[in-house]
Amino acid sequence: MKWIWEGIQQAFQLIVYGNPEVFQITLLSLKISGLATFLSLLVGLPLGTLMAFGKFPTRKFWVSLINTGMALPPVVVGLTVSIFLWRSGPLGDLRWMYTPTAIIIAQFIISVPVVTGLTTSTLQQLDPRLSYQLMGLGASRIQSVILLWREARLPLLAALMAGFGSVISEVGASMMVGGNLKGETRVLTTAIVLENSKGNFGFAIALSLILLGLAYMVNLFLTIAQQRTTSSD
């Protein structure tokens, strides 16, 4: 059991002395997952708003589809993206397979339903008369939507964080479409899998601690925002 303690010690040394590889992997993970989440926000926020307030016949069908998408298995996404980006696939000419772009696409597909679904449910929880009240004061549709987003800013932030959480911690899709190439597509989760299989537990624990730290910071940020709102009541 000594090796477990040695692994933890090694992990702390790697983090404290700023190991360049650990730093590079962490930065790449943040870049890829951050960009994927940002893109899912650009799509998910308006789409979720449309699902919440739109009046069209197939709305319920689309909402249920999005809700199903919230539990989309990352390996299925990885497989689908791989098929499309494979050299002989429909988008093979783009040469995106085993690049950060491929991981961003896969993570975007994973986080879009999360951001969209949570945006929908958040906005549906607002008082439906608020929208009429704003329009009754002269708001255009866009002005009204922006104010409704502002009213729901905290749960919407939570939706965004949930989207980020779902992609920073996934491994299946990143492994399949990124290939875990050192210095190019190796992110925290794929690196942990690799180092674990090599028996390099110190490195794996170091990366796991960073991943846990990121998850904690996301939650801390949310809690602070929540407490600030609550304390102003």
Binding site: D127, R129, L130, Y132, Q133, M135, G136, L137, G138, S140, L147, R150, E151
Partner: peptide, 19 residues
């Protein structure tokens, strides 16, 4: 309609104030 609604105002049963 928007032009018209910018010449009216509305108060509902609940105040429905912004946060």
């Amino acid at each position: 309609r928007l032009k018209f609604r910018r010449q009216i105002s509305m108060v509902m049963q609940d105040a429905l104030l912004l946060d």
